[in-house]
Design a protein around this nucleic acid. Sequence first.
DNA 1: TTCATTTTGTGATTTTTGTCACAGGTTGAG
DNA 2: CTCAACCTGTGACAAAAATCACAAAATGAA
Lengths: 188, 188
Amino acid sequence: MTGILETKIKSIANLSPEALDLLMASTRPKPLEKGRILLREGEVCKTVYYVEKGYLRTYFTKEGNEINTRFAFENDFVTELKSLRSAAPSAYWIQAGEKTVVWEFTKEKLLELYRQSAEIESFGRNLLEQMLVDQEEHGNLFRIYSPAERYQHIVRHSPHLLQRISLSQLSSYLGMARETLSRLRKKP
Amino acid sequence: MTGILETKIKSIANLSPEALDLLMASTRPKPLEKGRILLREGEVCKTVYYVEKGYLRTYFTKEGNEINTRFAFENDFVTELKSLRSAAPSAYWIQAGEKTVVWEFTKEKLLELYRQSAEIESFGRNLLEQMLVDQEEHGNLFRIYSPAERYQHIVRHSPHLLQRISLSQLSSYLGMARETLSRLRKKP
DNA sequence: TTCATTTTGTGATTTTTGTCACAGGTTGAG
DNA sequence: CTCAACCTGTGACAAAAATCACAAAATGAA
């Protein structure tokens, strides 16, 4: 039986069975209790995570408040790329928002695999391309839509966020005050 | 003498002289008059551009208005990645905002180079990583800052935008009304 | 189950931004 | 140089969202 991670990898790049095995051999599942911190502000990020179950949230703090920048759910990859790339202290935290299972890919191991296998580097490039496309489209939500319209967009396109993310956490992700989101939620 | 494009490429990835030559041999400079359209909505994007001089702007239209999503200046790379990747019709336009010189890298040729040279694929991955980091930070501006604060941020961190981009084009990029930006500009 | 903690809802009010309308400036093509 | 087309500034006003304060509800740990 093929796991969902393998299916995901294959959907991103056509790897030979050998390359797929190589990549899969570099990782294993890791269960996390709710609230577990995977990266703290100031630490250097050394890992890319794949979420099998549950979700991870990425956030930073500004004047004592947490600003959520990403929620990575089942079948998503996530990391703190700036810190990972440059080995610089991270400005962000990564935390499990529920009881979660992730697969870890360490930077060290990934770079080794990239050198070993052009196919795996190609996989890495393709994954980045997908993430960049998503990120660009997400950024445009803020250019086009008002807070009220952004909420409507989430209702239509990402309703799972409303079910799994608390209102106060979602509000910072959507760039609006908690009270605003609370009021939007009960309108027609 | 080494051109700025070569210097840029080397800053992104450590290529061997052979790989650098291979990559440089695939492109050449192309002058564009101001206003020249490089990609239209509905067309399939086939090219990555490097801007040597001038700038390119990327935008889409919403209810008859142009919404600017990016300005690529000297020494920047830019493309319409979603369309390029999937060969799908682009939702965006790309246009020269000034008299401009770009170097074109066609998708076809790039894919060939990726197959030929692991170093060049590594360059591609590194370039994408940089773009993704930038894009993520840019998106956060909208989460943290109000329109007035976003303007201040641009004043401090990207003043060249204020010099080279017209007020009305900048306003959509910053996600605010033209009048709002006009008023912000004359405050203390 | 209970109680403290955290999260959410809501009103009152202020502030910010958007919208509309139009005048004055600027620019570039001819 | 001239004039149309475009861009910018500005006032008046409307709408949206932020802020503040607090009550109500939900949650989770003991």
